[in-house]
Design a protein around this nucleic acid. Structure first.
Ligand SMILES: [Mn+2]
Ligand SMILES: [Mn+2]
Ligand SMILES: [Mn+2]
Ligand SMILES: [Mn+2]
Lengths: 238, 238
DNA sequence: GAAATAAGTTAGTACGTACTAACTTATGGT
DNA sequence: ACCATAAGTTAGTACGTACTAACTTATTTC
């Protein structure tokens, strides 16, 4: 009861909103730059003015550092909060899919709410029941209880040159429709795709998935991440 | 998508607080009288003035009817909300105990938060995974998805005359300490107790539980509910 | 480099929730 | 019937979160 990290003050529980802002900032920051007000606003479906206000509050709590007109970055404590939330989110999604028969295209919203209500104890029990998985149903890495996570930046299908072959490892989980669209075409984590053709000017990309050929838009392709991108070996045989 | 009850307007989701007030009012009302401001305040650990304010808001939403200086009663819609919340709470408690190894003395707080975040879909899936149980780990009846629930008023141990034998069916789940205290004495749902002695003036009640004799306080006895209270038959043999 | 546009901030408003302090109503004991 | 006390309400304050409108700063384009 009296252990606890020295760096952590009493820390009155954060609100659902504050937590979601931190997670959102974390995700935007993974792109490299600080999180811009408008990007946060758009992601969260909130007016930019409201974001300005919240950023000041989060800064006052020491969770982000804001450079006026420049964007926000998580501080170490803010990052810790974001990673714990991400862990909760992803374990919940995994649990819902594996233990309760949810479709992988249908868990995000539920997790978006439950993540704020689930205790660390519950999350650990779920994780254990799942055998401590390291990725969620969309291929996103699950941070450990200690806050470690794989942050490698992955290439997307949109980044692949013609002829490249790659394994799908992860995709954006925001839109169930999008996930169903992909799944219907065999584009799921673990699948192997090959870039058969690319139209210029962000045109459609033609993929070989299994035996079938699929043309997908550039935006869709940019939301599907791959691992081990490789040009087709000349002696190519899959 | 366009079905829906005629009586139900758009119904912007209620807040966690509003839901908890309704549940609390429901529980107090089970005692027969309207829920008094102070009782609600005490149950929720909130100032009476705050309760007055919230009751007006709930009344404006048509969820309670308030008689000034007299207390609040749920309306039909308010009652429906309370029962759905109760269903969520109790199914969550059951799930945590049965599927995730929680102790029955340790689930209430977790459920108190999750109940506001879990969708009807999630609750139905949990219920199904449990075989649609009709009572939670503390013996409380679980309302159906349609909002039906067993509201029989049960006698408590404190109501039993000397010599009576009864089956424990339910107990208050607010205080984990209390539940552990009871469990340690064999007083759990399903157990049979016999009243061996009673001190007057709300004094302790001596129970026979299994082979052992236990003296419990009147307050504790009043929080343990029993079914099939019966005087020991003259030819008594357990 | 100045004007046009985009991005971001502040000011002012609203609502829900909670608090304390001060007041009002109801009730029970004599 | 009266009054002391308990119960309940209102008024005034605070904070978090969100909004729109108006303004300011940064960036892009010519
Ligand atoms: Mn998700
Ligand atoms: Mn969320
Ligand atoms: Mn409970
Ligand atoms: Mn609750």
């Amino acid at each position: 009861m009296s252990a606890g990290r020295r760096t952590a003050p009493p820390e009155k529980a954060l609100t659902r909103q504050a937590e979601d802002y931190l997670k959102c900032i974390y995700e935007i920051e993974q792109g490299g730059a600080p999180a811009a007000t408008t990007d946060i606003a758009e992601q969260l479906g909130i007016a930019a003015a409201s974001v300005s206000g919240m950023l000041q509050r989060l800064a006052r709590l020491g969770l982000v550092s804001v450079e006026r007109y420049r964007g926000a970055r998580l501080t170490a404590p803010g990052r810790a909060v974001a990673l714990q939330l991400l862990r909760r989110h992803r374990i919940i999604e995994s649990f819902l899919v594996t233990k309760l028969g949810y479709g992988w295209d249908d868990v995000h919203e539920e997790a978006e709410r439950l993540e704020h209500a689930a205790s660390a104890e519950l999350i650990d029990r779920m994780a254990e029941a799942l055998g401590n998985p390291t990725t969620d149903p969309h291929g996103a890495p699950i941070p450990t209880a200690a806050g470690r996570v794989d942050e490698r930046r992955l290439a997307s299908i949109a980044d692949l040159p013609i002829g490249a072959r790659a394994r799908v490892v992860r995709m954006s989980d925001r839109d169930p429709e999008f996930l169903r669209y992909l799944a219907k075409r065999g584009i799921v984590p673990g699948a192997t795709v090959r870039v058969a053709a690319r139209e210029p000017f962000d045109g459609p990309i033609t993929l070989t998935v299994g035996r079938a050929k699929q043309a997908v838009g550039a935006a869709a392709a940019a939301a599907v991440y791959v691992d081990g991108a490789a040009r087709e070996p000349r002696t190519g045989k899959v």
